[in-house]
Write a protein that binds this DNA or RNA. Sequence first.
DNA 1: TTAGGGTTAG
Length: 717
Amino acid sequence: MLPCKIRPKSMPTPKLRTGPLKYAPFLFKPNLKPSSLVDPIKLLKISAETKNLRLGKILHALLITSNQPSKNGHPVFQTNSLIYFYVKCDEISVARQLFDEMPERNVVSWTALMSGYLHNGLALEVLRLYKKMVLLDGLCPNEYVFAIVISSCSDSGRVEEGKQCHGYVLKSGLVLHQYVKNALICMYSRCSDVDGAMRVLNTVPGYDVFSYNSVINKLIELEYLREALEVLDRMMVECVVWDNVTYVAIFGLCARLKDLKLGFQVHGQMLKSDLECDVFVSSAMVDMYGKCGKILYARKVFDCLPNRNVVSWTSIMAAYLQNGYFEEALNLFPKMEIEGIMPNEYTFAVLLKSSAGLSVLGLGDLLHARAEKSGFKEHVIVGNALVIMYSKTGNIKEANKIFSDMIFRETITWNAMICGYSHHGLGKEALTVFQDMLVAGVCPNYVTFVGVLSACAHSCLVQEGFYYLNQLMEQMGIEPGLEHYTCFVGLLSRAGLLDEAENFMRSTPVKWDVIAWRTLLNACHVHRNYGIGKRIAETVLQMDPHDEGTYILISNMYAKARRWDGVVKIRKLMRERNVKKEPGVSWLEIRNITHVFVSDDNKHPESSQIYEKVGELLAKIKPLGYVPDIAAVLHDVEDEQKEDYLSYHSEKLAIAYGLMKTPTGAPIRVIKNLRMCDDCHRAVKLISKVTNRLIIVRDANRFHHFHDGSCSCADFW
DNA sequence: TTAGGGTTAG
């Protein structure tokens, strides 16, 4: 009955075996008499489920040689079982050949083959087969057929055909079958038609955990978090038992909502259930605790894991990173390697961002080299992390090089480059990247416009800023938030439109935070507008009476105006309110060693040489017009002492050390915990000129690139 | 008596 040429050309020719069937003993149940042959169809099913190709082929041969129909089976059943077996063993072409040569087929023959195509990614072939089945063989599709056909519609994105199926199964009543309902929900979810999925869920009763997993995962992916919670409620009401996929999804939901209370409840429910906590669930838990700011809980879950894989390790590192514990994240890396776990692209992304957080350029370079060597550099998330790392560690040129070399870029990549340029005060470059982004057809998002508006602020582009905030964002359907409005205040401030900025803040119904008010206060300081400044200072101090930065800003503002009474008042207020004074600290990296400098501190082993170098530099820049702004320092200190106070600010010490220890022409990168003071800013500009060096200082506010006597911030920061 | 669904963590 069956032709012998079923073996396709690609398959190896089997060695010929002679004699009786050597494997016949397998076909007998040991506890039965040898004469009672086990039904080969049942054995074929077992071979299919265990993917035992060898046993199945023997059974196939047996069926051919015996040339007898199964004692209780029609020949169609035999061939259907063979098709099912070959499909399960990924021998789809053999299955197709058997199917094509069948003189007679039933619905099962078609579904067996269709499932094979569906699982091999050939969804369109399933739809072709469906048409043939109905039109040529005149067969009536059942629930099995629709489960496969609807899945094929979602796999191939054929929503219209899927909706036609939906209509048919509704009319025929087949929609009541669990598999059909789930396939429909999955189809609507995968096509991002959440309303469609919810309609199915609301019109036909009775769902299992698979349907709920499909819907919840999609809702979370599309950021419909409130709707996901509603579906979760329904799941609880219907007492559907959760599986691992559900727990992973719900921990992810808690993480996104930063809902620690719900996270605890879900964790408690999981402990009480019989669920075996696998690596997926435990990594999701580590992530949840990390995102909810509970790093110790995350660590506890991690420490208790019997088996850890690269994801578990990366999750805990990411939790440290997200909570600002950069060093802890980096320190886990060698421990992970000792356990023999190899890093992957996510691990490198987390490590690079951690080194960006610490501004350790040397370590970032090392990680860059390792990522490149291990082949992960081509991953978009590693590329993004490299752009972020280089721009945050002050090397914007290298950030741009990485960005330009990236073959595939996503919105995050573009945002990283735009925000990187903005942070460095390179507004024009940032806006050029934004234009390129639009030309490339990439959709900007909320973060993109934060970068764009801050770039406008850096370049004083008031008209463009208006256009982006009032027109383009609306056209793109992005609702402006506090960050955008704050950038806009920064833009008006930078342009010197202080009245307009204040009016804008007082008239726009936005819940302004202390950062926004400080933006305006800073502008009053730079533009020496003490009238508005005094008013804003009061507002800011009311909002946060303990922030040292605010007091320094106000004090500097009064000092610039020589309003010593104001300075004294602010200092008195600081003492009364017991505002913590943070010492000025700067650090720089030389050959992978980080050197730390504290203002007026002489603990560095080479302290006397450094102080000597500072003196030498100041002497060199005095002829160029540098006059120490003695009046800006505590006015009750003796003049001579005042100059010392200014000379030994930490950034001056760090820069002097950098000049002593690095080769001629090498750029010097310094990081400072506080804002640079006016005096240091003027001094460093001139130092960059007399030494012919590029000096990059990252202060609490932004990057300053000092070169040939000027600074990239154009004296506004 | 032969056929069908969700794949999740950083």
